[in-house]
Amino acid sequence: MSAFDITTALDDSAVKRLEAAIAPDWRSRALRWAYGLGFTAVMIYAAYVSEVLSPKIFIGLPKLGDALWLMLQPSGFNYLPEFLWALCETIAMAFLGTLLGAIVALFLAIFCARTTFPLAAFRFGFRRFADGMRTFDHLIWALVFVRAIGLGPLAGILAIALVDAGTLAKLYSEAIDNSDPKPVEGVRASGGSWLDGLRIGLLPQVLPNILSSTLYMWESNTRSATILGIVGAGGIGYQLADRLRVYEFGQASLMIIMIIAAVYLIDMLSGWLRRMLIGRTSR
């Protein structure tokens, strides 16, 4: 018997007292059980509604294996120029969409920020408007634009620009509202105009933030743009969905590899630009 084996040295009443001291009270225990059971029940229900708990999953697994096996063997290299061009179109869509969205967002943000736009009621309206733009996914807007102005990358650019304008307006206006009002006051007090206040007092403060969020959106949009083609809004998504629908998994796999490479490249470029632009001094 070890000297550290305490329990044998204690009488029954002492053990009971210790047990009582470390036992959680019944209410928090019951609550924890209720939470746990409730969460499990909800998850099982969600799984049931999503058909995860159905025999379909076992019937499908061998077929999934086949698809993955085919995807491990990229093929269709004779289509490479076509795929490359479509990929370039995707990248261009993401770039122009982000640019357009950023321009719109800049104007919208001025009306969404407390610092630059004092009329609270209108500001509330502008903010809800910006929220509304980013409520729907790119793909929904892309589908709407394809129906309205026809197939092609223009619909994709507009979809990206619209969602971006909403998201960036929110980010920009937050940057503006978090800025220091003193430099603006300094410019105004020395005889500068309202525009000088924005240009000299505000812009240098918020520019790094604005550039950073814009570059981040550019990266994110490059990912989103790869699928806009599924509804006919230009880019590599069209070919990808097309090949997948006729079960050409080898060609799809080639395109997916290209997409991953392109996304990496854009991330690297964006990171380089971020260091270049935000690391730099003055004016």
Binding site: V52, G60, A67, R223, I227, F249
Partner: peptide, 18 residues
């Protein structure tokens, strides 16, 4: 993108939420 995964899974599991 998840939509691309979905297209692959559709081949294996057929139409529907799964």
């Amino acid at each position: 993108p998840d939509l691309v995964f979905a297209l692959v899974f559709l081949f294996a599991f057929g139409l529907g939420p799964l």
